[in-house]
């Protein structure tokens, strides 16, 4: 199914959940690459058994680096027309991803970004919502893109967008960087409402609000 599309799944110490996530996603997308970012557990093995191709970073580099590695890897498949970035912890839904790819196929778009806030079903807490909204304000000012959700890992790119976008922010600031790249290359983009499943698992490991400070630091200091 969807053999013109590759799912890129960054993977870091998710051995307990990634097997189910991959098996489920493979029902919709045949081609999945997991980028094992130097996991200490058996994540890579589990992902390979579940039916994904695994590309392994020799050392831990960060989620942004893993995304870029996955994108560079799938560009090696001449049949690839679309790339979807998808989280390994089960918080994204394959039906959302499929709808986003379908929009790339039928509309004049290079990038479709998943957004939590176009959808009524937001499960994020009050503080998290405030911080996410602040991030959106920041992005709107710095990139002039009219987006409603800047740190959503579910994104779909056309092949040409995947070729143009370069993620240099290895760690957490890649969300902002992808938007900057979209603006820089004048890519045609749209947002698609998606539903994020905040499980106890993802909440437990989830992004601390302090990370927004770290992201700003990376954006300005690590250039």
């Amino acid at each position: 199914m969807n053999t013109d599309t590759w799912l890129v799944v960054p993977l870091y110490n998710e051995g307990t959940v990634v097997g189910d996530v991959i098996r489920h996603a493979r029902k919709t997308f045949s081609k999945i690459v997991c980028v094992d970012d130097g996991s200490a557990d058996n994540s890579g093995e589990v992902a390979a058994q579940a039916g994904a191709v695994v590309v392994t970073h020799p050392v831990n580099l960060g989620q942004g680096a893993a995304l870029q590695t996955g994108i560079s890897y799938v560009l090696g498949d001449p049949e690839m027309k679309y790339v979807v970035t998808f989280d390994s912890d089960g918080q994204h839904r394959t039906e959302d991803a499929e709808r986003m790819v379908q929009r790339l196929r039928t509309e004049d778009l290079d990038v479709v970004l998943g957004s939590r806030f176009l959808d009524a079903k937001v499960e994020a807490g009050f503080m998290k919502r405030i911080v996410l909204k602040a991030a959106v304000m920041f992005e709107r000012i710095t990139t002039r893109l009219k987006v409603t959700d800047t740190h959503n890992g579910l994104r779909a790119f056309s092949r040409s967008a995947a070729e143009q976008i370069q993620i240099r922010q290895n760690r957490m600031a890649h969300g902002s960087e992808i938007l900057q790249e979209i603006a820089r290359h004048n890519l045609r983009y749209a947002e698609e409402p998606v539903h994020i499943i905040y499980t106890d698992y993802s909440r437990a490991k989830g992004q601390s609000l302090w990370n927004s400070v770290n992201i700003l630091n990376e954006l300005f200091l690590d250039r």
């Binding site: 020799p58 560079s72 799938v74 090696g76 498949d77």
Partner: peptide
Amino acid sequence: ARRIAIDDAEPAAEAGRRLAES
């Protein structure tokens, strides 16, 4: 590190064919 990771992995075109069939 990225180059090493990609060079060590199954080539994407082959992997794509295998996954599409499997």
